[in-house]
């Protein structure tokens, strides 16, 4: 699955009248598994395509994406080992990552 598959799926969900958000890794420190630019597209029901980590934080990002779809506002998330919440969602790979989540209007 490449960038085009992810963006085209996002456009398809949108054309079906669904709320859609795009999550993008904007910066990383340490051994985070996916580089800056990695995308995860999410629809209002929680269906997802792509990845922003090795599977550690996708669950949390999907929930934030659904919130962003509801509120209509973008948000910048940070996950890392220094953050207790991050342990709770399981970014145990030792890195830190910032993810920008934006609704597609």
């Amino acid at each position: 699955m490449n960038d085009d598959d992810i963006l085209e799926q996002a456009a398809r969900w949108r054309s079906e009248g669904k709320g859609v958000a795009l999550a993008t890794v904007v910066s990383t420190w340490g051994s985070s598994p996916r580089p800056a630019g990695s995308h995860l597209a999410v629809d209002q029901d929680g269906a997802m395509i792509g990845s922003v980590s090795g599977g550690c934080i996708e669950g949390a990002v999907v929930l934030e994406a659904q919130e962003a779809i509801k509120s209509g506002n973008p948000r910048l998330l940070e996950f890392g080992v220094s953050d207790e919440d991050a342990w709770a969602v399981g970014l145990a790979c030792g890195g830190r990552v910032q993810v920008y989540v934006e609704p597609i209007e």
Binding site: D3, D4, L7, A10, A11, R14, L76, I104, E105
Partner: peptide
């Protein structure tokens, strides 16, 4: 992201032209 901008980006991808999306994080 505006839907129109996503459509524009997909059009650039389809035409195989390089494009950079710049987002203000502020």
């Amino acid at each position: 992201m505006k839907g129109a901008l996503l459509d524009r980006l997909l059009a650039e991808r389809a035409a195989k032209r390089p494009a950079a999306l710049v987002t203000s994080l502020n």
